[in-house]
Every structure is written in structure tokens, then in C-alpha cells.
Nucleic acid binder design. Structure first.
Length: 306
RNA sequence: GGCGCCGUAGCCAAGUGGCAAGGCAGAGGUCUGCAAAACCUCCAUCCCCAGUUCGAUUCUGGGCGGCGCCU
């Protein structure tokens, strides 16, 4: 695939691997990276946190020895991280990769992170205000709604969704109305070539069951406990993720050891469906079944675009 | 064999003589700084038969099934 390789060396196109959790995006991105002599920029809201490796599905040490990974394993698990931090870090990583004359491949699970990066979401530019959030979170829905509508009569957010309304108020108090003018996109100086990986739902479900079981066997509970032991609060974003949330429930005695992987698989199932729905509506995604090995077809597709 | 209780969606479960709450699971959807989050929508003629009644899931009788106790 010399053609594809050259085109990506020209640094105009960046392959972006998307799809539901558990479908093998990571493995495919790894193989693609070897093929293109590329480095991988992971777009995942949980893999950024240090030490929590098992349920975040971080790349293996073998993979990390063979390919350079970015945006993985660098944030204190007790800290919080968000989409804006991600976009900044990922853009820096991409610039760095390019400067070194190498090729980036983006691989992502977190839908907002991928879109915010590849479509250049402004995210309004207003950082979180923890005190204001704490105050607003204590309010009931209708009070929150009144407070929001008083600031902006047409904020364009779901008036049933407290999280969205709190954020909208936070932005409006910092900038003034109208909110909608702040949600802009400034596309990056490269084009994302979205590659979607998919499979029949029953196949995905089976893989998720298997993976959940394996994660428990690999020491998920001990990993969760050791995070608690070093002072990571139970409410830390990583620990609310699939796998850790259930492991915590088990540690608290709310889930048996047999229920643990089952519950993890169920929550993963729901997440996978949500990811599928998100990407399905994006016509820019070109889909590939995982069943016969999709790598040759993907390389061919990338070559044709380049 | 006798007595008592029960039988509502895949599961748990409330309820009423006037076309059946809620939760979980499931399906679909929304998404611009917590996104593995948050939110929205959809999803049952109430075990069967007969009777009472204008009308029964709700009342009566019988059947079937389950649970408990007793002999």
C-alpha cells in the first residue's frame, strides 16, 4: 500500500477508527499503525487516567512497545479531565507526530472526544466552575430551568436534562447570551477519514461477555481496591466507568462475584449500542465488518482516498 | 386428603367495578468543557372457563398452576 502510505506521510489525512466498545478497535488500530508506520492517538475519556488499566482497556505493554501511543495513561486518577483538555492534548500530540514526520492514527471510543477533535468543536471556551456547579446541582429541575431561561430564552439545550442546563448556565453567566453563538466548529488542518468497525449485535454481545469475564480474572477487583487504597475517591470519573463502578459495588457487597461480570457485560452492551447509534448517524463513517479480517479492505479504502 | 395464601409485560411489583402505577431488562433517540455521563420516547386487553353486572383485571363459582401449613 505504498500509495496510502505516501498520502498519509503528506499529513493531510488522518485515519480515525471508531465503533462500539469491545469490537477490536484497539487491535485494528495497532495493526494499521504498523502498516502505516504510524503512532496512535487514543480518543477515550477513561484511558487517559494512570494506573487503572484493566477495565479501561488500555493497549497492552507489547503494543505500547511496538507502537507509540498518545493520550493514554497520563492523568492522575483522582483528578478530573474533560473534552477540552482532551482536544488540546490530542492536537498537541498530532502536531508533535507531524513535526517528527510521522503519521497519526486516531482510535476512539468516546464519541464527544472524537467529534470535538475532528470537527473542531469550540466547546464554548468556558471552563467549568465547580462552586457554581455545586450550587446549581442542588436546585430542582424547574428552578434550574427558570434560572436558565432568564439568562437566555432560547439556549438550545434539553430543558429536562440537569447536566446540560447546569453547563448552559455556567457558560451564560461567564459570557452572556445568546449561548448558541458560542457553539462553533473550526475544522482542524487535516481531514479525518472515519473508519467504523461493526459486527452483528449478538457477536458484539458475546465478545463483551467474554471480555468482562477476563477483566475480572485479570484482577479488576484488586486494581479497583488499590486505587481506593491510594486515595482515589469513589466518585472519581474513572471509577464511575464500566467495570470499576461494578467492582466497587462488589467491594461494597452489593454484587456477588458471579453477578459482577454479568453486570459489566450488560452495561457494556448498553454503551456499545449507544456508540453504534452515535456513529450510525454520521454519514462520513465508512463501515467495515470485523469478520473476515477488515485490514486489507481498510488499507485499500485509505489508499483510494489518498 | 384438609386448610390457607397466591397467579398482573422477560424479571420484580402496585392497583382499582369503568378500557392497569413504578422499577429493572429490552428497543429507538438526543448530544459542543463530568460524555463509559446525563436526558427523552416506546414497550400488558391483568392464568383458563362460566356467572353477577350497563361494564370485571378487580365480585362469585369451577378448573389449572405455584407456595405454605396440617393429617
Amino acid at each position: 500500500m505504498a500509495g496510502a502510505h505516501a498520502a498519509f506521510q503528506a499529513q493531510l489525512l488522518i485515519p480515525v477508527i471508531v465503533g462500539p466498545t469491545g469490537i477490536g478497535k484497539s487491535e485494528l488500530a495497532f495493526r494499521l499503525a504498523l502498516e502505516l508506520n504510524a503512532e496512535i492517538v487514543v480518543a477515550d475519556s477513561k484511558q487517559v487516567y494512570q494506573r487503572l488499566d484493566i477495565a479501561t482497556n488500555k493497549p497492552s505493554v507489547e503494543h505500547r512497545r511496538a507502537v507509540r501511543y498518545h493520550m493514554v495513561d497520563f492523568v492522575d486518577p483522582a483528578a478530573s479531565f474533560n473534552a477540552a483538555h482532551y482536544v488540546r492534548g490530542a492536537n498537541d500530540a498530532i502536531a508533535d507526530i507531524k513535526m517528527r514526520g510521522r503519521v497519526p492514527v486516531i482510535e476512539g471510543g468516546t464519541m464527544l472526544y472524537v467529534d470535538a477533535l475532528c470537527d473542531g468543536f469550540s466547546l464554548t471556551g468556558v471552563p467549568p466552575d465547580p462552586e457554581l456547579r455545586a450550587e446549581l446541582e442542588a436546585l430542582d429541575l424547574s428552578t434550574l430551568r427558570e434560572r436558565l431561561l432568564a439568562l437566555d430564552s432560547d439556549p438550545g439545550v434539553d430543558l429536562h436534562n440537569p447536566v446540560r442546563m447546569v453547563r448552559a448556565i455556567e457558560v451564560l453567566e461567564a459570557t452572556g447570551p445568546p449561548l448558541q453563538r458560542l457553539r462553533t466548529r473550526t475544522p482542524p488542518p487535516w481531514e479525518a477519514l472515519r473508519i467504523g468497525l461493526t459486527a452483528p449485535l449478538d457477536v458484539i454481545d458475546r465478545r463483551l461477555e467474554e471480555r468482562s469475564r477476563r477483566q475480572v480474572e485479570r484482577g479488576l477487583i484488586a486494581e479497583t481496591q488499590s486505587a481506593l487504597d491510594v486515595g482515589v475517591p469513589e466518585t472519581a470519573p474513572v471509577l464511575t466507568g464500566i467495570g470499576y463502578a461494578e467492582a466497587l459495588a462488589h467491594i461494597r457487597g452489593e454484587l456477588t462475584l458471579e453477578e459482577l461480570p454479568q453486570t459489566m457485560a450488560r452495561n457494556n452492551r448498553r454503551y456499545a449500542r449507544r456508540q453504534l447509534r452515535w456513529w450510525r448517524r454520521d454519514a462520513r463513517v465508512t463501515w467495515f465488518e470485523i469478520e473476515p479480517d477488515p485490514l486489507p479492505a481498510i488499507l485499500k479504502h485509505l489508499g483510494s482516498k489518498a
